[in-house]
């Protein structure tokens, strides 16, 4: 796109190079509504279920949650954007919508390439060894077997799970929660992503790992990707992101430089 502009008209070369701002994620008044199963409640008797089918009403244990209510923003290449907000404000849902894993009910989300969501609950196979999970995760991200073979030692090294002896060959169910979260992050961070979505992943792990992962996020950004980071730890948002979006009960409350947004957010939280 940029090349095209430069070649087609030489006038643009003298202008400030605003065109370098290439959007990677565009949200246009996005609404996300998802349905949750409340589980078996007091009304979950067979008779009630039969009555429901006869009277054609929808199941009472399914409730609709309007999690994201009309959010619009544009993210550009090379940006790291923090997403903050209180619990249940729709941050994770928004990430899922960007990743294309939850449908948008109204409005639209457009993305460049395929965003990858890296969450702490990304499931791996707990009965298998860490090493095998690394291979499996890499293959699931679309790498070739030779690439996987080359990267596996690096990923294990980066995750640091072998610091306390050979854990890589043990099944993942023997890992502590911090260890498996670190391994998941390491797998996802091994690939160059157009858009990387990180959900609370940096919050786990010890100090050394957090330093390494923040460094890795910076590298990913330099490789012309866009990074979204959802975190409750304002310090890690402050360290990695220069732009922050503040969501509150599904609506976009503020979007701007991290320092400003975090200041406003802290005032809001303290006044509650």
């Amino acid at each position: 796109m940029v090349d095209q502009l430069e070649n087609s008209n030489d006038v643009t070369v003298t202008l400030p190079r605003v065109q370098d701002r290439i959007p990677t994620v565009v949200a246009d008044d996005a609404h996300v509504i998802y349905r949750v199963h409340k589980g078996a409640g007091a009304t979950a008797s067979p008779v009630a279920a039969l009555k429901r089918i006869v009277s054609r009403t929808s199941a009472p244990q399914i409730r609709e949650v309007h999690a994201v209510k009309g959010v619009s923003f544009t993210a550009y290449r090379g940006e790291a954007i923090g997403l903050i907000g209180s619990n249940g404000s729709g941050k994770s849902t928004l990430l899922r919508a960007i990743a294309g894993l939850l449908p948008v009910n109204r409005g639209a989300v457009y993305t460049q390439g395929q965003p990858s969501l890296l969450g702490v609950n990304a499931a791996l196979l707990n009965d298998l060894s860490g090493e095998r999970n690394v291979a499996l995760g890499c293959l699931a991200m679309g790498m070739s077997p030779t690439e996987v073979e080359r990267l596996t030692p690096e990923i294990i090294e980066f995750s640091g799970i072998n610091q306390r002896g050979d854990f890589a060959s043990l099944p993942m169910r023997t890992y502590s929660s911090g260890m498996s979260a670190r391994l998941r992050f390491s797998i996802a961070a091994a690939k160059k992503h157009d858009v990387l979505l990180i959900d609370e992943a940096l919050a786990t792990g010890d100090k050394g790992f957090r330093k390494r992962s923040e460094q890795r996020v910076r590298e990913l950004r330099e490789n012309a990707g866009t990074v979204f980071l959802v975190s409750h730890q304002l310090s890690s948002v402050r360290d990695t992101c220069e732009r922050t979006i503040w969501l509150e009960s599904g609506t976009l409350r503020m979007d701007g430089p991290t320092a400003e947004v975090i200041r406003a957010y802290e005032t809001y939280v303290n006044s509650k």
Partner: peptide, 23 residues
């Protein structure tokens, strides 16, 4: 003069840069 993207709606912006609908 400054930003060729200004004045575009979000959808037009996305189309201009060849972004695809997520998912």
């Amino acid at each position: 003069l400054a930003d060729p993207d200004s004045g575009l709606t979000q959808a037009q912006l996305a189309a201009r840069h060849g972004l695809r609908v997520a998912g």
